[in-house]
Computed example of a mutant assay.
Amino acid sequence: MEAGSIVPKQCFSADILGVPTDFAIMEFDQIMVVATQMGKLGTLLQARQDSLTQTYSVEVLLGRRNDPLLEVLARQLIEKLAMARCPKNLTIWLGLKDPSNPDAIKGIIAAVSDKRPWK
């Protein structure tokens, strides 16, 4: 892979509560995760970490702003990045059929965590 090219680091599919879910994980100056059950990008969130204060911030950049579970998902993933000592921030696109289902959110977190994109 050429430096600076945007090529998925990992692409895979997983069954999340009986719903086929496609994932793409890319890495450049940050980690980008796409998780979709609808073939659309959906809501765009950005999660940032401040290594000095060990705090995290999550912001909805585009899409559903009234669903706190999407922010929980982004916060969980940025915390996992920090625990793995990866200093990069996270951009995540979530196109979920039922984004208010806590079990679906847990399934997405588990699927991404299993692939450990922060190596």
Rank of each mutant, 00 (worst) to 15 (best):
Q10T: 14
N89V: 01
P117N: 06
L41W: 06
T36S: 14
C11F: 07
C86A: 02
S100N: 09
G95Q: 01
I16E: 12
T43C: 07
M38N: 10
A47K: 02
T55N: 11
K106V: 08
K9S: 09
D67Q: 09
G42H: 08
T43M: 05
G42R: 09
I92L: 02
K119A: 10
L90Q: 04
M83T: 12
G95R: 00
L81C: 15
A47V: 06
V72L: 10
M38Y: 00
K97R: 12
P117A: 04
K9I: 06
V72W: 02
M26Q: 11
F12A: 01
K115G: 04
K97C: 09
E79H: 02
D29A: 10
I16V: 15
L45P: 13
N101C: 15
V33R: 01
L17H: 08
N66F: 03
I108M: 06
F28W: 13
I31V: 15
P99H: 11
V112P: 07
Q54S: 14
S113I: 03
P117L: 04
P20H: 04
K115R: 15
I25M: 12
R65E: 12
S57W: 00
K80R: 12
N89G: 05
A24M: 13
G95E: 05
V19E: 15
S5L: 11
K40L: 15
I92K: 00
I108H: 03
L41A: 12
E2P: 12
L69F: 05
A74V: 11
L44Q: 14
T21G: 07
Q54F: 05
M83I: 09
L61K: 14
N89L: 03
D50S: 08
Q49Y: 06
K119F: 06
